[in-house]
Amino acid sequence: MFDELIEEVDSQEFQQVLKGFGYGGLLMQVGNCKYLPINSTLLDQETGAPVDENDSASAGKIVSYYYRFKRSLAEDMQNSALIISHGGSGSILEALQFHKPIVCVTNSRLMHNHQVELAERLSTSPYNYLLPCDPSTLQTVIKQDLKGYLTNRQELDEHVVVKSLADFGKRFQQEVSFTRHHSNKKDDDDRPTTRPKSNKTMVVLGSGGHTAEMFYLLKHIHGDYNRLSYVLADSDKRSYDKIVEFEQTSAASSYSVHQIPRSRNVGQSYFFSIFTTIYAFFYCLLLVFRDKPDIVICNGPGTCVPIVIAAVLFRFLRIHACKIVYIESIARVQHLSLSGKILQYVANWMIVQWPSLIPEYNDSKSNNKPSSSSLKK
């Protein structure tokens, strides 16, 4: 969340607008916002009970509550009639999975604003999944456009989604498959038998939407990948919660978590990111050498660049062979990320989410053309 959005949603004027559409309650996750709601009641994160009742539930007002963080928003989303979300891809994907109407409020202050790109793409034909705006236009958009959006909005076609994810899982196995030979067992043709190798998979997590996208895909990768090694930036405080949540429902037999220096912070200039990336690279050299993954999966954050370069270096020096899968974030609609522009040359398999990105992919310097997938009706 960001302060402008929370402050707007907490205002009495906005809550009256919601009440006019028949909504009787409001629940907010405010995260690390500096602005603390004054027209809403704080909830205890553990018990869900109000910490200190105020007059938010008094006559003529909508019932409004807020909390800082929850490990998962799934239950709140499932119980909602309308979701007002920031423009992060993770929140949008989760809301779409629950088939909820979404008002997507983008943050125009972000560098290279991909939130706006994604929101605009998902709000136009043939998608019409969400209603986009920014904090300054939130009230106006709801007053003027919410009724029409609720009437005409599209929902994800579950059959298309299931088929697409199944195809992704099957293709993933083909692209990264390893085999292990067993000369002590013979088949009917008296030849050594083979079976899939139990792959040690290193998963590089970003933050926010990158992490949400990664776990969305991990749920649908079928195969013997029961040794997961998660890598996240040492400044990422929320991805660890997502790891725990995922592993509680996963069939993986074991996993490990590694924190590394971040190679590039959000908003950091490309020039200074050179030095932080070099520092992170030497740190990652030791990690990759010690962990020796068979597969590295990443989806765009700068955290992944030194990990992948380290893996490529060991592969080139014949110290350890490792396959690299790079999945460009769905938020990248018009242009590849800096990570994508760099790693397209070394990834064994590269996936972009939107067909419009394929011409930007320089396949003349890579053995594999990128696959493409998108959210379709």
Rank of each mutant, 00 (worst) to 15 (best):
I142Y: 00
L118N: 01
D157R: 15
K237C: 08
M214T: 14
T211Q: 09
Q115N: 06
K185H: 11
T151I: 04
R180E: 10
L110M: 06
S164N: 10
R180K: 09
R191E: 12
H222S: 08
T140M: 14
D224M: 05
V141K: 11
G209I: 02
Y230T: 07
Y225E: 10
P196M: 10
N226S: 15
H112D: 00
G208Q: 11
H114L: 01
M111E: 06
S183A: 07
S136I: 07
K143M: 15
V176P: 15
P192A: 06
M111K: 09
D187W: 14
R180H: 06
M111D: 06
L110K: 07
P196T: 11
H159L: 13
L228R: 13
P196N: 08
K163M: 04
V231D: 05
H112P: 00
L218N: 06
S235R: 14
T201V: 15
K237D: 07
Y225N: 02
T211Y: 03
K219R: 11
S125K: 06
D188G: 06
V161H: 12
T124Y: 00
N113K: 13
Q154D: 15
R227H: 13
P196W: 06
L146Q: 14
P192G: 09
T211R: 03
D157C: 12
L131S: 03
K143R: 15
E213N: 07
T140G: 13
S198Q: 01
L156I: 09
D188I: 08
Q154L: 10
D187L: 10
T124R: 14
L228S: 11
N226P: 01
V160W: 07
N226Q: 15
Y127P: 12
Q174F: 05
E213G: 03
S207E: 14
F215G: 05
P126L: 03
I142C: 11
H159Q: 11
R153V: 04
G208W: 03
Y225M: 07
M202V: 12
P135V: 09
S235V: 03
D234R: 04
Q139D: 07
G206H: 09
G148Y: 02
S177K: 14
K219P: 13
H114F: 06
D167F: 12
D234T: 14
S229D: 01
L146W: 12
E213Q: 14
D224L: 10
Y225V: 04
T124L: 05
I142L: 02
K143E: 14
R195C: 01
H220I: 00
R227K: 09
K200E: 03
F215T: 01
V161D: 11
G148D: 13
V161Y: 05
F172C: 01
Q144I: 05
L205Y: 01
V203Q: 09
L218C: 05
T137S: 08
D134H: 06
R180Y: 01
G223S: 06
I221S: 00
T179D: 12
F168V: 03
H181T: 05
F215W: 13
D145Y: 10
V204L: 12
L205P: 07
R180I: 00
R195N: 01
S207A: 10
G148V: 10
V231W: 02
A212F: 04
Y216C: 04
E158C: 11
S207Y: 14
Q173P: 09
D234H: 09
Q139F: 08
A119C: 08
F178V: 00
V203W: 03
L150N: 06
Y129P: 00
G206Y: 15
D190N: 13
S164P: 07
V160Y: 02
P192S: 05
T201S: 10
